[in-house]
Amino acid sequence: MSGTSSPPTASTAALDLASQFIDRRTPLSRVRGVLHRFPAISPGIVLLVAVVVFGILNPRFLAPANLSLITQQVAVIGILGVAETLIILTAGIDLSVGAAMVLSSIVIGNAVAGLHAPSVVGLIAGLATGLAAGALNGILVTRLKLPPFIVTLGTLSIFTALLLLVSSGATVQGTSLPDLVTWTGGTFRVIGVDISYGVVLMVALYLLIAYMLGRTAWGRHVYAVGDDREAARLTGIRVDRVLLSVYVLAGAIVAFAAWTQIGRDFGSSPNAATDANLNAITAVVIGGTSLFGGRGTIWGTLLGALIVGVFRNGLALVGLDVLYQTLAVGILVIAAVAIDQWIRKSKS
């Protein structure tokens, strides 16, 4: 403080004493402080340890072909996770991204194979479907002021019904789709590792959204809205506009997940990816993004998706039954949220 020389009163002396007490940090609380500031550290460590351990347990795990497989398995959930991260950062939740993705893939498949629309038109129709799904969620959240959980629980059913209606329950095979529509499933080889175009698409989306969140005013507003909505409003942020933009952008990302899904499955099926939505939320949560909003990074979600992929693949290679993979994912989720709670306690 400056030179105002008011005599130290009992209350300020007590304050000084209190601040000294708070400043005395244990090593553990220091670790907590660092994790608080960089939420992607803990999933990063988990991923590293998992890769090393599975590599030791079964050398085949680290073979280029297997690593390539993991990335391809992760691509769809990884992309959906981008959309889910944006919404969770605003202290929302989206239960409908999985259904919206399948709806979008059905629209693409049926437009191209059924109505013989050109590939580009089919993909644009898929994008429009994703945008419309996101806009519907966004309008219900911002205009009707309904909780995102309720809105997306409702639209989950609506999108599921629509996708069954549009597809008549039938699968469109990849053989009846042009190359551009299944392009995301194609691969190219870099130093012995096959990389699919879907993975490239995923990485591009991560780079784009990481830039938008970290380097633009819009990104700061997304964090501010999720952190403390009323404070954001009072500082002049158009909260509803930010929320709507997030839901619409998430819808667009969902359409890219749909395209990747078609390439990966080589076709579009109404029965595809039933657990994609929960897997996307799992990736976000394991990635250290807080369900309370305002905290987390997009890279954490990529790590979260990779952790789930690595665990499933690694446990399978070790020869364990699928049920143990599912068990492991469940434990990971609860551990991740418990760590998040513990980290958040470092400040009050």
């Binding site: 964090y223 404070a231 400040k347």
Partner: peptide
């Protein structure tokens, strides 16, 4: 300056 301060804790 609002009573609630209207600041974003994470920023």
């Amino acid at each position: 300056v609002y009573q609630t301060l209207a600041v974003s804790p994470a920023l």
